[in-house]
Design a binder for these strands. Sequence first.
DNA 1: TTTTTTTACGCAAACGTTACCATTCTCTAT
DNA 2: ATAGAGAATGGTAACGTTTGCGTAAAAAAA
Lengths: 343, 343
Amino acid sequence: MKFEAVTIKDIAKALGLSTSTVSRALRDSYEISPETKKLVLECAEKLNYRPNPIALSLKERKTRSIGVIVCEIANSFFSQIINGIESLAYDRGYNVIISQSHESYEREILDLQYLSSRGVDGILISVSTETSDYEHIKNLHQKGLPIVLFDRIAPGIDTHTIIVDNFKGTYEATEHLIHNGYSKIAAISNSEFLSISSERLAGYKEALNSNGIKINNDYIKHCFYGGMVFSEVEEAINQLLTLKDPPEAIVTLSDKLTIGSLKTIKRRGLKIPADIALVGFSNSDLTELTDPPLTVVRQPALEMGKAATELLLQLIESKRPITEFEKRILSPEFIIMESGKRR
Amino acid sequence: MKFEAVTIKDIAKALGLSTSTVSRALRDSYEISPETKKLVLECAEKLNYRPNPIALSLKERKTRSIGVIVCEIANSFFSQIINGIESLAYDRGYNVIISQSHESYEREILDLQYLSSRGVDGILISVSTETSDYEHIKNLHQKGLPIVLFDRIAPGIDTHTIIVDNFKGTYEATEHLIHNGYSKIAAISNSEFLSISSERLAGYKEALNSNGIKINNDYIKHCFYGGMVFSEVEEAINQLLTLKDPPEAIVTLSDKLTIGSLKTIKRRGLKIPADIALVGFSNSDLTELTDPPLTVVRQPALEMGKAATELLLQLIESKRPITEFEKRILSPEFIIMESGKRR
DNA sequence: TTTTTTTACGCAAACGTTACCATTCTCTAT
DNA sequence: ATAGAGAATGGTAACGTTTGCGTAAAAAAA
């Protein structure tokens, strides 16, 4: 059923040449006479010859494709990242193969195995929330497969990493609330395992600290699945609001948590920021349209995707082994709207 | 730099067998004795053998990968679709290779060429807004490459298609406005070339018609880039609002148009629905949180992705040529909130 | 015992391409 | 004249796998 492609052999046969000559002519080798080259090129054009990338892959042991593993595609932040990845990969002639971990450790292992066995030239990965053991990644990396980590970093792997300044993000968000007169500020974070969680929480704590506010551990909630399970967020908010001394403001440390919190708070009939203030990470393009418009920390997702791809291709295409690794940190954008304003 | 994979040869050498025997043992051929099979299997396990899919692809002329072309990944609707595609493809052992057309005809041609030359087994495509000539798709399809069209259909191509009941979507949305007392209802649509545009506009017109409202062509606006260019939407809204007899409600016929319109209307300081009502297509997960909560037509994107993949794999894996094609139409969901309520 | 059948395996070609080595000419310099 | 160099091309192996065909040995039938 599949259509027959024109091969180098067909050209050779048509012209009465050998395949080696044709191959060399196509690659513009100095060994081939100009006339033959012209003949071959014309014939190739006429027959609409397209080199077979699979055959090339087999020979060169390169596939010109890169694998991407994220928890979820249908998430503004990650889809924007993928947009960046795809756009740069496209320019450089690489395919992008997408895999989702759905926040599952097992699935992440399978994805990784699958991609590497499919012979991708390199992998971009943002680890799943369940992942606390990084051996599967480390192993593959030690075997020589180029890997670049982005957003959610796996510690102990010697390679390029690219993240946003998470500390700064929450620091600014928290301080914004403090400057607006809040001092009872809670934080809702992703799983404690994730690098982004500790970095972001550190920013939150430091903002409180340097403004002389004592940290209250009851005000810090972790949602293991980062809001992928809505009830988790609901539960966290409920716990916070039923404390004997409930918080007056909440900082949410990831996109889904922000949206989930907003939804929960509104469903409880509370007004933002009158009853409770809310600021958090989000890359949704609707945050300025919500009620109230959300004050958010926005990550430069497109750039992150591009930068990560840039670094990965650098690793892939480098002749000699690279031992110096870059840790690129992009600055988040802090967009002030209404949801964190003074009451 | 790339790690060496274990091949069938390594196993053969280790066991003093021929590669054919090993190959057959691994495929559990009846020609191989149980003892040899056991030996081979154990050895494969021990050496951590993984079959090389590239070599297989070259031999079988199958890559077990499918290509997807959409205008933009960072769009709720399409990222949800891709989520569906990826999940089903994963289950069936296929890779998903993503390409974006960025609503460009040229780019779509390149994407298609690229994917087919990369040897994907089939393609899922939702055409770009610029595309009005479908020869590039038709050609590939006639050469035998399995293609399934979804959402934005290319006419004149004999294959499976999967769409949402676009007519019904706008019909319901428009009628909802009418039932709420509106009769001056405008429509903002994508490019006239797109199949979804005509289908959705037809629903709008029919709803007006069957409720005895005359169609006013000044009330119908087309945004060629479907809201990818924000100013387009702004312009359309401005034109509508400066008519001598301006509309009192707007139906937006795609996700980006809905969001763009909401943004524009709010920026102009108008209240929804008090000053102007707004309902439209959207798959964003934030529409219930906007101010006001948006009444929307939601497409079952995940299902669409799965269904499209299902149909494509059916095409790919079928032994005999398929001549009977399915046109699957899914029902949209109409979610009533505030933005289309009576004033 | 001899012939036939079955069992269990090896050989080699093929998928499309490239790279190394070899071969045939045609010049040029001695 | 003749070795040597250079130009232009062909032959072949290799990448990893499957598969049709061939064949030795063992088992079954005669």
